[in-house]
Each structure stands twice: as C-alpha cells, then as structure tokens.
Computed example of a mutant assay.
Amino acid sequence: MQDPTPMRIGSALSGLLLVLFLVVHLAGLLPALIAPLTFELYATTLHHQPWLPLLEASLATTATIHLVFTVAKTLRNRRAGNTAALRSRRGRPLAALASRSKVAAGIITLGFLTLHLQQLRWPRPADGLEREALLQVLQQPISLIVYAAGSLAIGLHLLHGAEAAHRNLGLLTPVNGPSIRWGGRLLASVIGGGFLLISLGLALGVLI
C-alpha cells in the first residue's frame, strides 16, 4: 500500500467528485429516454437555477485539478520506474487494459466533452427543446460515434480509477481489494453503459 501524498489525494478526491457528477448527470439524462416531458421539465428547471454557473465553474475547476494531478502523477511514476501497480494487475486483463489505455481514454473523453459542450451548451437549447437538440446531435453518425466512444472511454477510466483512487488515498488493502475491484467494475458498467444506452436509444428513436 502506497502512502498518500498531496498529489495522490488531490487526484483521488477530484476524481470522486467527478464520479458524483456523472451519477447525477446520468440520472438526470435517463428521463430523455423513458419520460420526455419529465426530462424537459427537469432541464428547464435546472437551467434557470441561479447557482448553475457556479456549479459549472466548480466542475471545470475540479476537472482541471484532476487532469493536472493525474498527468503529474503518471509522469512521476514513469520517471521512477514504478511497476508495482502493473504486477498487481497480473491475471486481470481488463484492469490492465484500462490502465494502459488511460491516456487514450482521457484524450477521447476530452474530445467528446469539447464536442458535447459546443453542441449543447454554447449555445444552450431553448426551454422545451433540449431533447430535440439532443436527438438532432445523436442522429448525426459522426456525433453518435464520438458519443459512443466517449461513453466507453469513461467506463474504462472508471474501471481503472476506482482502484487507483483507493490506492492513492491509502485505503486499498489485500482484504478489501476484491470488493473495491468488483465495485469499480459495477460502477464503470453502470455509468459507461448507461450513457452508451441512452445515446444509442435516442439515436435509434427508442422510447422505453
């Protein structure tokens, strides 16, 4: 078990805050697939809240902190020739894949986020037209591919990040390791799979 450092703690805590946002965002987006009127009411109410700009600024700050700390930690580990984490993933090919692809997953996620904000945040759709705007975006093949890739990249990043966050906080032990890994797989499947399901469902015109 590695001792926590400010860099590791910052990376873990910022990541956990972003996971909380993803859970809330997924829950808010799900009605677009199963209850369109409820989704429009939710979106309109949310967009008129006076605290929304502060929340968005906080999310942008948290994401920047997470990116900076994660990149710095990765570079430091490479310079130090740290192979402990690689040895711990022997016999777990999916975890090894998630770890090796974390840079690519991060780049894909950033690209997806940039496109997503450009299409649905600047400018923001008018009240009552949020779902229609989302449908128009997802029915474009290129956009659907990017959204699907972004969903898979988020899932892979969470698969790696759940274990990494507990390790960075000094909470990963041989006793709780299996439970944390299974919990990470479940979290990655629910969030990554949930965003993928919603994207494909809306693109195909599926209404549950």
Score class of each variant (00 low, 15 high):
residue 21 F to D: 09
residue 108 I to L: 10
residue 145 I to W: 08
residue 76 R to H: 04
residue 171 L to F: 01
residue 184 G to W: 10
residue 174 P to I: 09
residue 126 A to P: 07
residue 150 G to L: 08
residue 132 E to H: 07
residue 119 Q to T: 07
residue 81 G to N: 07
residue 150 G to K: 04
residue 149 A to Q: 09
residue 190 V to L: 15
residue 206 V to R: 08
residue 81 G to Y: 00
residue 104 A to S: 02
residue 91 G to N: 13
residue 103 V to Y: 05
residue 95 A to E: 15
residue 112 F to W: 12
residue 106 G to P: 07
residue 157 H to W: 01
residue 145 I to G: 03
residue 111 G to M: 11
residue 12 A to C: 06
residue 5 T to R: 11
residue 96 A to P: 05
residue 105 A to G: 01
residue 177 G to N: 15
residue 92 R to S: 15
residue 179 S to H: 14
residue 160 H to Y: 13
residue 102 K to T: 09
residue 14 S to F: 03
residue 52 L to T: 08
residue 138 L to P: 01
residue 198 I to N: 00
residue 52 L to G: 03
residue 126 A to Q: 06
residue 142 I to V: 15
residue 43 A to W: 04
residue 6 P to G: 09
residue 8 R to P: 05
residue 77 N to F: 10
residue 130 E to N: 11
residue 94 L to K: 04
residue 145 I to M: 06
residue 62 T to F: 14
residue 103 V to Q: 05
residue 194 G to K: 03
residue 25 H to K: 12
residue 205 G to E: 06
residue 141 P to C: 03
residue 38 T to M: 02
residue 134 L to G: 09
residue 176 N to I: 13
residue 79 R to A: 12
residue 160 H to F: 13
residue 104 A to W: 09
residue 199 S to W: 05
residue 194 G to R: 05
residue 44 T to P: 01
residue 85 A to F: 10
residue 122 W to Q: 14
residue 196 L to V: 00
residue 93 P to Y: 11
residue 175 V to G: 02
residue 188 A to L: 05
residue 64 T to V: 15
residue 32 A to F: 04
residue 86 L to W: 10
residue 134 L to I: 07
residue 142 I to T: 15
residue 95 A to K: 10
residue 94 L to R: 05
residue 57 A to T: 10
residue 100 R to A: 09
residue 128 G to Y: 00
residue 178 P to W: 12
residue 60 A to H: 11
residue 143 S to L: 01
residue 8 R to Q: 12
residue 46 L to K: 03
residue 170 G to I: 04
residue 68 V to M: 04
residue 35 A to G: 07
residue 19 V to M: 10
residue 115 L to T: 05
residue 59 L to E: 02
residue 174 P to Y: 09
residue 91 G to K: 13
residue 140 Q to F: 00
residue 141 P to T: 03
residue 62 T to I: 15
residue 15 G to F: 13
residue 187 L to N: 13
residue 41 L to K: 04
residue 141 P to K: 08
residue 8 R to T: 14
residue 37 L to P: 03
residue 187 L to G: 12
residue 188 A to R: 08
residue 180 I to Q: 08
residue 49 Q to L: 15
residue 17 L to Q: 01
residue 175 V to E: 01
residue 81 G to C: 00
residue 143 S to G: 01
residue 17 L to E: 02
residue 27 A to P: 04
residue 53 P to K: 14
residue 149 A to F: 04
residue 105 A to M: 08
residue 23 V to T: 03
residue 87 R to K: 07
residue 62 T to V: 15
residue 65 I to P: 10
residue 202 L to S: 00
residue 2 Q to R: 04
residue 2 Q to T: 02
residue 108 I to K: 08
residue 95 A to T: 04
residue 5 T to H: 11
